[in-house]
Structure formats: C-alpha cells, structure tokens
C-alpha cells in the first residue's frame, strides 16, 4: 500500500458549512411542510441564502469551491467514467467531473424547490408564499403542485447522492464524508493546498445572500 502524506486541506470552511447546513435545512423544511409553515418558510429563506452564497463562493472562493475547477466538459467526464469502476481512491482534490454533475443538479433542484415555494398558493388560503400576490390564484396553485413534484425529484437526487457516497466508501475505499467535515484528506502524492481567500469576499457573500433572502421574505416590500 502506498505511503500517504500528512493531511492536506481540500474543502474550505464555507463550503463545509454550506453542505451540512443545507442537509439540516432540507430536513427541517421537509418535516415542517404542511405542519408549521412558519418554520417551513424560515427554512426555505435560509436555503435561499445558502444557495445564493454558494453561487457567489463558486465564483470567488478557494480552488476546490470554484465551479471552474470541477465543472468539466464531455471529454473529462468520459475520461473519468472510464476509471470510476476502479477499486482505488481518487487522488485529486475537490469534486470529480462526474460528481460535478450531481452538484449542479442538486443546486438546480434546490433553486427550483425554493423559488416555486415563493409563489405557491395553498388550499386553505392562509399560508401562501411571500411572492404569491404577484401571480393569480390558479397560477399559484400550479406553483404549489410543481413545488410538491420537484421535491419528489429532489428526494431521488439525494438518494443517488447518498448511493454514490456509499459506492465510493465501499467499492473505491474512498471516504468522502470525513473530508467534508474536517476539510482535510491524505493523498499519496503532494497536491496543491487550498490557500486562503480574502475575508472581504466572505463578508460580501454573506451580505448578498442575507440581503436577498430578507428582501424575499418581506415580499420585496420596503
């Protein structure tokens, strides 16, 4: 077995916090749907803030956070697929080209899920989304149906995601969960470390995401 070097940083703290907060909030939103709409809305606004932050961080964050580092074209994807069945862990930091597809799909679904909720009109007339006044009753009911259907798709995607993590753990002997918690991982040969990101980018990201989420929660009313 190849000797491994000491652990290298692979995921920065904002990425890791984003990941696990998203998991918790999706669970909260799921469990509170139709039961406590106050909690459900709060969870939804928080998810919006998280996703907006992640999009910003994907532009200006550390190397492994950036979409440009892991969103790859068909050639890279096919090339990675050819080796994906090997029973050895990968040796490059960050998302691989196939995992990248999963990242984008999950982000897209979460965006669809939250935005349809904003315009949804409920059956009881009491708990409609903050932007539902912008659409008609019938359109709002349509959004509510899509909001529900999109969640089914999101559940499937989450299932695929978990299955993939298990596949990597069992078949490829690569632990993906640990590094997403600690941010560190051992490699068999040296890889470029993450490097630091100027704090102002973090502050701006938080400001944009919180500001937008708050504005949405208030229905963009002054």
């Amino acid at each position: 077995m190849k000797a491994e070097l000491k652990p290298t940083a692979v995921w920065d703290l904002p990425v890791r916090l984003f990941h696990w907060l998203l998991v918790a909030l999706i669970l909260v939103a799921w469990l509170s749907a139709g039961k406590s709409m106050t909690v459900h809305s709060l969870a939804g606004y928080s998810v919006i803030a998280l996703v907006v932050f992640r999009l910003w961080w994907g532009l200006v964050g550390s190397s492994t956070a950036r979409f440009s580092s892991f969103v790859r074209g068909p050639r890279a994807i096919l090339s990675y697929l050819r080796h994906m069945g090997e029973r050895t862990p990968g040796q490059s930091p960050g998302h691989n080209p196939v995992g990248a597809i999963s990242v984008l799909a999950l982000l897209a679904l979460v965006l669809i899920q939250t935005s349809t909720g904003l315009f949804s009109v409920d059956v009881d007339g009491l708990e409609s989304g903050p932007l539902s006044a912008w659409v008609s009753f019938d359109m709002g009911r349509q959004f509510a149906h899509i909001h529900e259907f999109a969640f089914r798709i999101l559940q499937v995607l989450v299932g695929v995601h978990i299955a993939a993590i298990l596949y990597y753990a069992i078949w490829k002997r690569e632990n993906l969960v640990g590094p997403m918690i600690t941010g560190r991982r051992r490699f068999s040969s040296p890889v470029t470390s993450l490097g630091s990101v100027p704090v102002w980018r973090l502050i701006v990201g938080i400001a944009i995401s919180l500001g937008l989420a708050l504005a949405i929660a208030r229905g963009f009313r002054v």
């Binding site: 007339g125 539902s132 006044a133 009753f137 019938d138 009911r141 009313r221």
Partner: peptide
Amino acid sequence: FKTMGRAFKTIRDGMG
C-alpha cells in the same frame, strides 16, 4: 371552491 379561493386570495393579497 376555486371561486371562493380566488376571492379570498384577492383579500389576502390586499392585506399586504
């Protein structure tokens, strides 16, 4: 029911 729903939504939208 949808007729009533539309009317109630119009009222609720006005609450803003």
